Structure formats: structure tokens, C-alpha cells
Simulated scan of single mutants.
Amino acid sequence: MPIDAVAAVAAEPRRAEIGWDHKDIQLYHLGLGAGSPATDPDELRYTLESRLQVLPSFATVAGAGTGMAGGLSSPGVEVDLAAVLHGGQTVRVHRPIPVRGRAVQTSKVAAVYDKGKAAVLVLRTEASDDDGPLWTNDSQIFVRGEGGFGGERGPSARPVPPERAPDHTVERAIREDQALLYRLSGDWNPLHADPEFAKLAGFDRPILHGLCTYGMTLKAVTDTLLDGDATRVTAYSTRFAGVVFPGETLRIRMWSGDGRIQVAVSAVERDDAPVLVDTLVEHS
């Protein structure tokens, strides 16, 4: 079997030194659609170096996203990348991410679950600097055709959808060039830029990165319910349920709770087709 679950989980973490500064933060935020209107004081905290804060979702691209790549190249993992789907993402920040920093990043396979027709790899990336832990990322990666090996199915608990109308609903337009800008933060998959490659993958045009939708959603929640203060976010999780195309509009529904905001995201132009589900923002 291409995935040896025991060997994958037992393997020593991959270690790498990473660094970033204000340019990396600004590029990431611009890739999420920040900066419109360009002179809006609320947008300048994402785009102007003298006022800059960092969305916690930046952790998914820090080091050009090498953490996930390190996990997929772990011993015991030999998969066809064409069979790989990004199923879900969780980021937990242990303190606010600094605008400029250096860190040691470790990546490993934290778990392998058997879903029958697919295996699920939980790729964990942790980063620490001289002051201690910064963030923990868990990426849930589905590998089609690799299930059925008799392993654990994994946790099945999911957030219970609220039975009331959303407390807030906002819409965010996706620029036609947004995937081209977002990919400069490190995800060079041609699926998001090359029309011919997208057709080979079964799409009539390039699709937006799921992690771009993930970041856009966190920014919308932060701006709408957290007074625009990204340092209040402590954890953010989602499950990817559908694709998004550049030029479409995201409809982002939010339900507030005690330190928790549940979120659902859909594509307006495709009859509210689900995009992000089981989405939860935890905050102080």
C-alpha cells in the first residue's frame, strides 16, 4: 500500500527554518482582496506597513507553504498527487503572529484515518520562535483510493448548524486576477492559473485556491464581528465543500456565540453552492 500508516505517524518531524517580513504579510493580505478601498483606514491595517497586523491564516503560507509539502513527503507516504484533495484546515495561534519574524517549523503526519474509499492524512505543522510556540496547523488531506486498510475512521464530531437566521451576512467579490496574485505567496499549482491544466483536471477554467477562500472568510469575520482586530482570533477551522472560481462572489453567513463564531460560505452565482462548511472561528 502506498501509505504505511504506522511508518508515517512514527517518522521524525521534518524541520525547517522560515522567515517573513512585512512584504510577505502585505502580499498575502492583497491576495485575499485586502486594500479596497485603498485609502480606507480599516483596510490599511492589512496593507500599510506602519499599521500592519497579521491574519492568523497567514500561518498556512508562511515559509511558502512548505509545511504541507514536508508532510506529504514523509516516510510511509507515497501517493499520486492527482488523487489528493485538501479536505479541511485548522489553524491555532498561541499568540499574535509578528509582522517580522523567524521561526523553526516542524511538519509530520499526526494521524492516518481509514474512510473506506479514501485515506485521510492529518499533516501537522508547528512553528516556534525564540519566545516559544507561535502556531499549529492541521491540514486534512484526502487521498482517493487509499482507504480500506482497516485503520481507525477518525473523529466524526462536527459543529451543530444553528437553527436560526444568521446574525450577519456579508458578500465578498473575488477579482478575476485574485488566484494569480494569491499564488505568489507560495502555492504554484497550475490548476489555479493555467486554463489547459484546469481542463485536464476537469474544470472549464482555473479555480481559486481553497486556502484563499479560507483567508478571505477569516478577514470578513474579523472585520464584521471582531472590530477588525486580528489578534483576537485564537483558532480557525473549516471543511472544504466546493470550488470557487475567480470572478464569483462569496456569501458569508455568521452566527455569534460565546467566544465562537460559526460560519457558512457559499457561491452566490451558483445558487449558493456550499464552499466552506463546519467552519468555526474561536476568539478572545
Rank of each mutant, 00 (worst) to 15 (best):
His86Cys: 12
Asp194Val: 02
Glu248Leu: 00
Val99Glu: 02
Leu85Arg: 10
Val99Gly: 01
Phe142Cys: 11
Pro2Tyr: 14
Cys212Val: 12
Ala198Tyr: 01
Ala118Cys: 07
Trp20Ile: 01
Val99Lys: 02
Pro37Tyr: 08
Thr39Glu: 15
Ala62Arg: 01
Gly150Ala: 08
Ile97Tyr: 00
Ser237Ile: 12
Phe149Pro: 07
Ala198Arg: 03
Phe240Gln: 10
Ala201Leu: 10
Gly210Ala: 10
Arg260Asp: 13
Val281Leu: 13
Ala127Tyr: 03
Glu248Tyr: 02
Pro274Trp: 07
Ile174Ser: 09
Arg14Val: 11
Gly33Leu: 13
Thr234Pro: 02
Ala110His: 05
Asp167His: 09
Leu121Phe: 08
Gly154Arg: 11
Gly71Leu: 01
Asp258Ser: 13
Tyr236His: 13
Val109His: 03
Ser128Phe: 03
Arg14Cys: 01
Gly132Arg: 09
Ile174Trp: 06
Gly242Trp: 00
Gln105Val: 06
Val263Tyr: 00
Pro56Gly: 07
Leu30Thr: 04
Ala193Tyr: 00
Pro206Glu: 07
Asp114Pro: 08
Gln262Asn: 10
Ile18Asn: 03
Val9Ile: 15
Val77Leu: 11
Val9Gly: 08
Ala165Tyr: 10
Leu81Tyr: 13
Ala62Met: 13
Ala179Val: 05
Gly35Phe: 07
Pro75Gly: 02
Ala8Gly: 09
Pro274Met: 11
Glu152Trp: 02
Arg124Ser: 07
Gly145Ile: 11
Glu176Cys: 03
Phe142Ile: 14
Lys199Leu: 12
Met1Ala: 12
Ile261Glu: 01
Gly150Pro: 12
Ala83Val: 02
Thr136Ala: 10
Asp167Phe: 02
Arg260Ala: 15
His209Pro: 05
Val221Glu: 01
Thr238Arg: 05
Ala5Trp: 09
Phe245Leu: 14
Ser50Glu: 15
Ala198Ile: 00
Pro195Gly: 03
Asp4Arg: 12
Asp229Pro: 04
Val79Tyr: 08
Ala8Leu: 09
Val91Phe: 05
Phe197Met: 13
Gly210Met: 03
Ser128Val: 11
Lys219Val: 08
Ser107His: 01
Ser74Gly: 09
Arg92Val: 12
Pro37Cys: 14
Ala241Leu: 01
Ala157Ile: 09
Gly19Pro: 00
Val265Asn: 05
Ala157Asn: 09
Val160His: 07
Arg100His: 04
Ala179Gly: 09
Asp129Ser: 00
Thr66Asp: 10
Phe203Trp: 02
Tyr214Ser: 06
Leu32Met: 09
Ala198Ser: 08
Arg95Val: 05
Val160Met: 10
Glu17Asp: 13
Arg144Thr: 06
Leu32Trp: 13
Val54Thr: 07
Asp80Ile: 06
Arg95Trp: 05
Gln178Ile: 11
Asp129Gly: 01
Leu123Ala: 10
Ala83Gly: 03
Gly31Asp: 06
Ala110Asn: 06
Thr47Pro: 14
Ala173Cys: 06
Ile18Phe: 04
Ser74Arg: 04
Gly33His: 14
Lys108Thr: 08
Pro133Asp: 08
Gln53Ser: 15
Ala64Gly: 04
Ala16Tyr: 02
Ser36Cys: 08
Ser139Val: 05
Val99Trp: 00
Asp272Ile: 09
Gln140Ser: 14
Glu196Trp: 04
Gly154Trp: 06
Thr234Leu: 05
Pro2Met: 05
